[in-house]
Design a protein around this nucleic acid. Sequence first.
RNA 1: AGAGAGGUGUCCGAGUGGUCGAAGGAGCACGACUGGAACUCGUGUAUGGGGAAACUCAUCGAGGGUUCGAAUCCCUUCCUCUCUGCCA
Length: 416
Amino acid sequence: MIDLKYLEKNFDEATNRLNKKGVDNSLLEELKNRFKELKEINNQLEEAKANQNRMSKLFGEYKREGKDISELKSKVDKNKELIASLQDKANVANSKLQNIALNIPNFPDESVPFGVDEDDNVEIKKVLTPREFNFRPKEHWELAEINGWIDFQRGVKLAKSRFSILRGESARLERALINFFLNENRKMGFEEVYVPFINNYNMLQGTGQLPKFSDDLFKIEGEELYLIPTAEVPLTNIYNNEILKKEQLPILLTAYTPCFRKEAGSAGRDTRGMIRQHQFDKVEMVALSLPEESEKIFNMMVENASNLLTKLKLPHRLVELCGGDLGFSASKTIDLEVWLPGQNRYREISSISNTKDFQARRAKIRFKDGKKNRLLHTLNGSALAVGRTLIAIMENYQNEDGTVTIPKILEKYIID
RNA sequence: AGAGAGGUGUCCGAGUGGUCGAAGGAGCACGACUGGAACUCGUGUAUGGGGAAACUCAUCGAGGGUUCGAAUCCCUUCCUCUCUGCCA
């Protein structure tokens, strides 16, 4: 959630910043007015309650002293009605406010480039040069077929479309990658964590998936519980509604989880192959940091993810997302895109975001700074998407006969 | 899943309708004592919101209700513990 006080006091500046993300001015105008309205109602309500409290105390005194209470009683009854009506007004105003506020995206960082969609993203640098093939490099599903690595059809049978089965060496490679990523992240100072794959409504709201993106989530029938779309949700919310000590920061966490997404808006996209599945494995990094340090940590996380690809000798590039392509909660995002020779293009394999205080405000994660409680900054990033790394390995390490060489660095994770 | 017990501040723990944002203790902070420390003594010590401040509102797991007034009574719900069941 954005800072409503800031919006109120610096309206023009705030709207300018959000325009970069394509947010409508009139919506912000309404949000500002709702905020003002709610504050006014709350002031009246508070005053009425203060009167009530005072009179109630008097009531007790009168009774003890044996005084007549009928006059006081009628005053207090009247005031009670006033409170009830103001309370109703406040509730209505508040839910209207929340409806808007929870759907407003985060401010983009000043450094974020202008642009409307992914075509306006800015390439920062390329790492490693794609290999020259003296044959036509195959797409990963062709290689999967040749090696018997991925069973798309039976995956669909077990669940529905966009589910698949890894068999044999590919399944072991998947597991090897998870271990490799977790180990490398740990070496960078991230604490390994194992979390629930089902989280409740509040947590999903805390990190920004709800209420706006409920269509993308798998919900447990009859419960306010959801399959997590990313480990960012449980990891970040570990400290939901807590006040941390300054010395605890930064907190660096990493976890492997499967991720579940409905992919509601992606009908027809990447239907072939394993690029876009309803269930996929990911190793995630999350950081909770002092506001002053989040930029430094952000850069460290980008570097860490990039190093993982470099260690796997996978060519990739770093891309800074433009305002229009930035996610809902993100203030700044750098994507890592890995080279897929079969597709002859770079594809996203990691996304690292600094949400600044946006999620912290929603999830009420604060730290003690002297006497004051301050919102901390939260960051998240994949290190890495496992299934897509598997694809990248298949396509980049393929031989002419369709076999795939296992990257050296993974050998020790596969050989028992 | 069934039966019972219980959820109070950083922690332990008292509190069954008003003087309770909450006794007492521990811890912590500051001060006194000391060459320095321990002990001892004194003072202070929850969170969130509005406000420049005075002040004020809310919060005793959460949400509703009764009442002029709720930590205390009622309802719903979540969680913890014990026993039974079931498992990994």
